[in-house]
């Protein structure tokens, strides 16, 4: 990438800096490009910090918030109950009552993504879910567990999801190829949808912030634009958490009922 004085002086925009993983303690490197090079797997980084904050928020909401076990709930408790019923209804609607066995896992997934996304919108925060490493592991975990579950529960019948009996016989092999490709693309699209959305939204906010910094008094326009994009991002982070979860439910439904 180009380096030089002009690039720095024109617009001081570094939309990718916010995604850099840094160690929390001991800033050993002066060059930001070297920071990520020699991270040990156990080093506490800003990933650790923001994951910890997310876990703390979830604990606050679900452990402290529901401590009263009140029949007439407090505000926090009713939020927790709303999330509970929301996820539960989503599972029941898509996979039926059978899917409720996986309720804790899907709830974990939903809460993790929701809180990581929303906390990432705080200024100076770090968005864990904007990293392909994180979303990729989530998506591959979903993909592998759903595939294994499908074969364990249905055996060879699970392959019927590739062989569409409603289609004419001549078309079925072609459709089977398409289905197999789309099946294996699932983890890719599943992870990149979430990671890409998070990365794109935050980068856009950062780009507009760079405009605001360069324009001086004229910065009103980019600031209004940031507000608009920020509002959109609030919507997007929640919808992406919802979409990731609902697609997990759809894949789970394929594993539970392969014959559609």
């Amino acid at each position: 990438m180009a380096s030089g004085a002009e690039e720095v002086s024109a617009f001081n925009i570094h939309p990718m800096d916010q995604f850099v993983v840094k160690p929390l303690f001991g800033a050993g490197h002066t060059d930001i490009n070297d920071v990520m090079k020699d991270l040990a797997w156990y080093t506490p980084t800003n990933v650790t910090l923001w994951l910890g904050i997310a876990v703390a928020c979830i604990a606050l909401l679900f452990v402290m918030g529901t401590r009263g076990r009140a029949v007439v709930p407090s505000r926090t408790q009713s939020v927790a109950e709303m999330i509970y019923t929301f996820v539960r209804n989503m599972i029941v609607d898509i996979t039926g009552e059978e899917g409720l066995k996986f309720f804790p896992y899907i709830m974990t997934l939903f809460m993790f993504i929701l809180f990581a996304n929303v906390l990432g919108l705080l200024p100076y925060s770090f968005t864990v879910t904007s990293h392909i490493a994180v979303t990729g592991v989530l998506a591959i975990a979903v993909f592998l567990s759903v595939t294994i579950l499908g074969f364990v529960r249905n055996g060879g019948k699970f392959l019927k999801i590739f062989w569409i009996t409603e289609a004419p016989l001549a078309l079925r092999p072609i459709l089977a190829i398409i289905e197999i490709i789309s099946y294996f693309v699932r983890p890719v699209s599943h992870s990149i949808r979430l990671g890409g959305n998070m990365m794109a939204g935050h980068a856009v906010v950062k780009v507009f912030a760079g405009f605001a910094g360069a324009l001086g008094v004229g910065a009103v326009a980019p600031i209004v634009a940031i507000m608009a994009v920020y509002g959109l991002e609030m919507l997007v982070v929640v919808i992406q958490a919802y979409v990731f979860t609902i697609l997990t439910c759809v894949y789970l439904n394929d594993a539970l009922h392969p014959g559609h």
């Binding site: 990718m16 609607d93 949808r193 890409g196 959305n197 979409v243 609902i246 697609l247």
Partner: peptide, 26 residues
């Protein structure tokens, strides 16, 4: 829910092109 799934599928392709742009740039 079906609408959101449809949105997610069609949006993913836009995100892919955005990702291609980012990869080319960075």
């Amino acid at each position: 829910a079906t609408m959101f799934i449809g949105i997610a599928f069609s949006e993913a392709l836009g995100i892919f092109s955005f990702l291609v742009a980012l990869l080319l740039m960075y």
